[in-house]
Design a binder for these strands. Structure first.
Lengths: 258, 258
DNA sequence: CGCATGTTTGAGTTCGTTCAATTAGCGTGG
DNA sequence: CCACGCTAATTGAACGAACTCAAACATGCG
């Protein structure tokens, strides 16, 4: 019932590396502009960033806990997630990152990665050398401010996830996550808050919400049974946004939109 | 059996406001120096920051979710925690912050606070206007780097808490937290990793770990019964650090010390 | 001494887990 | 076009970690 290989890049085959994808810079600009006003010079500087594009297969770790990256990865196309392993082999997913996000921005100032980044689907990443990004941060205050906000909003999302993991029921967690992903994707221009593509398996969903796969399945079914959500394969349709929002106690303030 | 009012500030009575506590700046310097090398000029600039010191009673919220602070609060003495409320009146504590930390550093770039800050004990805070701090960030790259790291390490701690909340048993969560607090306090120069003051009630502990008060109590008793920890009132003594670390699957890498 | 806050204990309940199949969807090769 | 094999989704049943409720016990303080 699920097809994760929705042919984002050909048949999922990485087509090697490309260089100087000038146009890809606009993705970054659009995102940062939502967080802080940018000057023309800022935009120009962003466009001149050296970006090395690279394609990755689905279900692959692209960096691992403990790595010391020398560049930051911007998700150009696809969907990634960050996760941490625990002793018995289980894992906790700590974020989902659609195209437009920079899941290892922190590596700019912290050498050692404390999580892994994996792909949900075939994904194209754009890698920007730390050096180049650091130079921008020092010469362009608005870009520094935007990146700072990026980090800080992300921390806010972590806190909200902590609330879900610690104090919400499994049902509420699923509802809350679906609202969050909807808003995130809508902001990034991928679908609307109530109709979008979210290519996770129920097992990935469970690992993000701190529940078992079996239980994730039952909760999703419950959401379907009550006609709040249609979720087939990777396409999510929220039939009753208000009901979902209430079910998950979802208050978007923590996303700091605007 | 618990005495939270351990006379941090007289009998817990705020002694009003003080201004220009020049010496308090050194606390901030010591902390930032651990995160990034500082120049003499940087130190001087930090010492010249206008700091308004203010005392707060125990068990008081000093800022609330939704507030829009115009200054950042440095914990000078005492202990605070950040928390978020959920609909039914329960809450999730998302961090504990001993003296030396700046629990609302993010407000520098995000106007609206998405959590509340409360005191565990009588606490003295030092407030630094955003304006002054922003000026420093723009004029002194090393200070900017240190603050950036501060934020990013904090996000790393959030992720580790998510792992605890999502994938560790109650027993592991308590063990993990005790290790973390021990290291944090030792780094900050308050006691050692295996002998320190942690002035939380079991109810606060429970709210941080996403469990019920009753269960928190039972787990703490278990830790005592096995002679791993002595925890009387607010003073924690870890008799067997190695055992505690193993019990909580504690790997300090996520604290990014060094 | 008595109140207030915090800790401890017991007992019944529940939400979510684990284990173990079964079913469904889809790509591949014949 | 169909059988095979893979992955993911679904189901049932027994179990268990943690919860709730309710009461008792400590301890510090005025």
């Amino acid at each position: 019932m699920v097809e994760k290989d929705n042919g984002v890049i050909g048949a999922g085959a990485p087509s090697g590396e490309e260089r100087g994808l000038h146009s890809e810079g606009t993705l970054l600009i659009r995102r940062l502009e939502r967080l802080a006003p940018l000057h023309d010079d800022d935009r120009r500087a962003l466009l001149e960033l050296p970006i090395r594009a690279k394609a990755h297969y689905a279900d692959q770790d692209i960096v691992r806990e403990g790595d010391r990256p020398t560049e930051c990865g911007l998700v150009l196309k696809g969907f990634v997630f960050r996760h941490k392993l625990v002793a018995d082999g289980r894992r906790q997913i700590v974020s989902f990152n659609p195209a437009g996000e920079i899941p290892d921005l922190q590596s700019l100032y912290l050498p050692r990665l404390d999580y892994s980044i994996g792909t949900l689907v075939p994904t194209r990443m754009g890698y920007v050398p730390h050096q180049a990004l650091r130079a921008l941060v020092q010469s362009r205050p608005s870009i520094a401010a935007a990146l700072w906000r990026e980090i800080v909003v992300e921390a806010s999302i972590f806190r909200e996830w902590m609330v879900s993991l610690g104090r919400r029921s499994a049902y509420q967690r699923v509802a809350h996550l679906l609202c969050e992903i909807g808003l995130k994707l809508e902001m990034a221009g991928h679908g609307t808050r109530s109709e979008y593509e979210f290519p996770v398996t129920q097992s990935e969903l469970a690992d993000a919400l701190g529940i078992s796969t079996v239980h994730a399945n039952r909760v999703v079914q419950e959401l379907r049974r009550t006609n709040i959500v249609v979720w087939r394969g990777s396409s999510v349709t929220i039939l009753d946004w208000r009901a979902l929002q209430e079910a998950g106690e979802f208050d978007p303030a923590y996303l700091h939109i605007q």
